[in-house]
Design a protein around this nucleic acid. Sequence first.
DNA 1: GATTATACGTGAAAAGATTCACAAAAACTA
DNA 2: TAGTTTTTGTGAATCTTTTCACGTATAATC
Lengths: 213, 213
Amino acid sequence: MKLAKLSVMRLFQYKEFLIRAKSIGIKNLFSDDLAEAMGTTSTQVRKDFSLFGLSGNKRAGYKLDDLLAQLNELLGKNEKQRVVIVGAGNIGRALMKYEGFYKDGLEIVALFDSDPNVYNETATPPVLPLEHLYEFVNRNKIEVGVIAVPYHAAQQVLDIMILAGIKGVMNFAPIALRAPKDLYINDVNLKLELESVAYFVNALKRDRTKNDV
Amino acid sequence: MKLAKLSVMRLFQYKEFLIRAKSIGIKNLFSDDLAEAMGTTSTQVRKDFSLFGLSGNKRAGYKLDDLLAQLNELLGKNEKQRVVIVGAGNIGRALMKYEGFYKDGLEIVALFDSDPNVYNETATPPVLPLEHLYEFVNRNKIEVGVIAVPYHAAQQVLDIMILAGIKGVMNFAPIALRAPKDLYINDVNLKLELESVAYFVNALKRDRTKNDV
DNA sequence: GATTATACGTGAAAAGATTCACAAAAACTA
DNA sequence: TAGTTTTTGTGAATCTTTTCACGTATAATC
């Protein structure tokens, strides 16, 4: 299957919305309703569905339960995915504490750090010494990892992850990591995202004042 | 100017790399070096530069100091941008504690929350009651805000921000916000990002086993 | 049961982003 | 200083994603 990354991301969002819609008793909906809720267009919604073979009923739209079942099948709700986080700093701990993961099949099973002051083997999830990363991942067959360490340590951590069998990484370190291409890397750079907001605010302001003249 | 969002984001990343390169004594470099460091191509680098009128020297590449000066000019390093964060939960506090912002022109001037237990007016940045958001933003002419509240509160917070004069928002709430189109919104959905990693790991695995048969 | 209205599904067109290909400028060489 | 090499800068081509346009199925109405 082609990796239609943006469509997949939207499918997850549709799913999220459908779960909420279900919880308030909605049984049927149209692509327009989804589009409206997601800030996109009904065509986009239907195109995404079309790409992945999700279908509804002409004239009557979609049955929420059916659609949700199809999405869960497609997005793999049933396969629980265990995740390790490396770096127990601000971001690592924020992710750890986020309760929303579990119900969607994501389980944070351990954090790792190089600072002995933060070790806590009895917590859930435990915070373990970085030296145990390889063995832990390897033994427990973990496939997804989060890198939340300073940039100078990130490549090193990734190399261990790869050796240990990790197949997909969410990377918060602001650096381009080297990896074999069968590893899936998702870079998330929060500073960059915030900087870009500041930039566009300024850019739009400049634009506006220029046009006023 | 056209909003070439992806190019702008890359420009910020080039800048980040240049700062590091400068700190280890590099004086000149080629588009190839930048590309290599960023995991992209030299053509992409030059195209980005071309789009924004950044130029170097044929055959001799780029003088690091010149390039950095041009980037700072373009990306507005000099204009300090003050930011408020609404929501003093895990993500809000993680951002607050991140020290990397300040040196790049971003200053977190206050957090806001609805929970009296987290108020702390004397801290830096202070954590203030949500009711003060409008007045604070309005009085201090803040233009950038971060929404790090649960999804059901996000629209309400945004509405206040808009009234108070905010022009750009980084939104961590997993919901499509309604806003006039002169407001710049950057949605960041961490759960979605992690879910998608898990999805692609599974998808690639399925693919691989299928091809092995 | 025939007619009509509505919303889906999807090729085709458009828009947006990346890569190609090469002319031209600058530095180095002899 | 003439010739060669290297790297930039950018139109054109390609690839990707989104939007358009419309045929078709289905529910509702008469």
